[in-house]
Design a protein around this nucleic acid. Structure first.
Lengths: 250, 250
DNA sequence: TGCTTATGAATGATTATGATTGATTTTGAA
DNA sequence: TTCAAAATCAATCATAATCATTCATAAGCA
């Protein structure tokens, strides 16, 4: 990775979050700690950021987060954590389905340089995917104006063109009896079919989704692995009986 | 490989990614490191790029794709004129295909309130369509990073879901013998199929395209109507023998 | 032929990097 | 508050990568 690429990456990250830890940058760039330190020192001299103990932060911490909507900002830390873990499952050469939604969106930066092929129904993912030079395909379909997701029969049908190594889905509800649920039936249909076309299927959710039931059924717990930031102790046991579960914590 | 070819290659790469390593260029061009260095030095002197340790990067790394907006600004007045006329052909209740591209993009504001259904392969149209509350479907397919068009077999296949009253296409070349042409074969395939699926097909072009031949054949003049801002007198006659032509002037 | 230009290899110089060290700061428990 | 452990830091050094420069060869052209 080029020096300037790293610098750019750091500054971009600081556009989306107030501060960042050195350790996170080490993981992201797979450069050494020393190198990241030097990067931060240089960028500080250029007044591009401010160094703090353990990391760096934006010059103007009050500046609003431009590129992220409110929903995306909610549970952002958790989502990023989950997303990073999910992305770590992706191997070089994998073909994956990336569901529309703000949680899966967080995966994109972590996919950089993995030589992965992405199919998505999330219009808002496209820009980020392009920014990180990730080979991408979009499903067709009706454009849902609220979520910018592509849905409908055309969306599910265009999935038939593909087979995935892994798919990564977002949901709104996780419930022992009702399984995974989401508000929109058409989106649910896309998720379901994508899961069926994958060798393995991962559901990403932050803890707030647990014990929720949303309207449209996606599929049962047993049909996929769940990646979540934390869970009540008893829930872990109960869910483990039905699904592969990975609880990611900082 | 010719020197200028290498230069062109480097600049094209930097349109799609913000930086590139010397080693990558060595592999791509199978020229020596020295040669690439010299190339980069020369291009830097021409202000076409900025050298950095290990490679080179775009002059303005933040401005992602100047090519698109530049292109849009060019012949803007003519394009708008053509687009307005084209939009006037669209009737309430029509289902239309709107090709990717900057000329067709100009049609969108004029479609407002027409109760029209739009299918498009132009990612950059989506926002404008949503802004004007126009019911829209997107074709699927591979995302061409330069033009943000959806192309490839998945794109043409997803067209099969639809039938259009009218389709509106952009092209790069209009030529008496070679018909309509465009630089990218995959984009040409989408245009062609969309035209076939339409009851009537309109090609939008400003005068600068006349007498050009681009690489990929779309179809013959006889297969569609041409909407253009102006043409030499003799051309009008000759083309009229082959196609329906509408010359729009202010 | 003689002239120019483009190229590739070789050189020592410069820059970037990662590991190590001991100093400094933070954290959390007493 | 104080203290000790842990984390983070700046400084240093050796190594690796990259750089500008030079020179010799090859290719194109009058």
């Amino acid at each position: 990775m080029l020096t300037t690429e790293r610098h750019q990456l750091i500054l971009n990250l600081l556009k989306e979050q107030q501060s960042i830890k050195i350790q996170e940058l080490v993981e992201l760039t797979s450069a050494s700690e020393s190198t990241i330190r030097r990067d931060l020192t240089e960028l500080e001299e250029l007044q591009k950021l401010e160094r703090v103990f353990g990391g760096a932060r934006r010059i103007d911490p009050n500046m609003p987060e431009p590129s992220l909507s409110d929903k995306a900002a909610k549970h952002l830390k958790e989502k990023r954590l989950i997303a990073r873990y999910a992305a770590s499952l992706v191997k070089t050469g994998d073909a994956i389905f990336l569901d529309a939604g703000t949680t899966t969106a967080q995966m994109i930066p972590f996919l950089k340089g993995k030589d992965v092929t992405v199919v998505t129904n999330g219009l808002s993912h496209v820009e980020a995917l392009a920014d990180h030079s990730i080979t991408s395909y979009l499903t067709g379909g009706f454009i849902k104006s609220r979520t910018r997701a592509l849905v409908g029969p055309q969306a599910t049908q265009s999935l038939e063109n593909y087979r995935f190594d892994k798919s990564f889905l977002g949901v709104n509800g996780i419930h022992l009896v009702n399984g995974f649920t989401t508000p929109d039936p058409e989106e649910a249909a896309v998720k379901r079919r994508a899961g069926e076309l994958s060798r393995s299927c991962y559901v990403l959710a932050d803890r707030s989704k647990y014990d929720n039931v949303s309207f449209a059924h996606v599929f049962d717990l047993s049909r996929s692995a769940l990646i979540i930031d934390s869970l009540p102790e008893d829930a872990v046991e109960t869910i483990e009986r039905q699904t592969t579960i990975k609880v990611v914590a900082q």
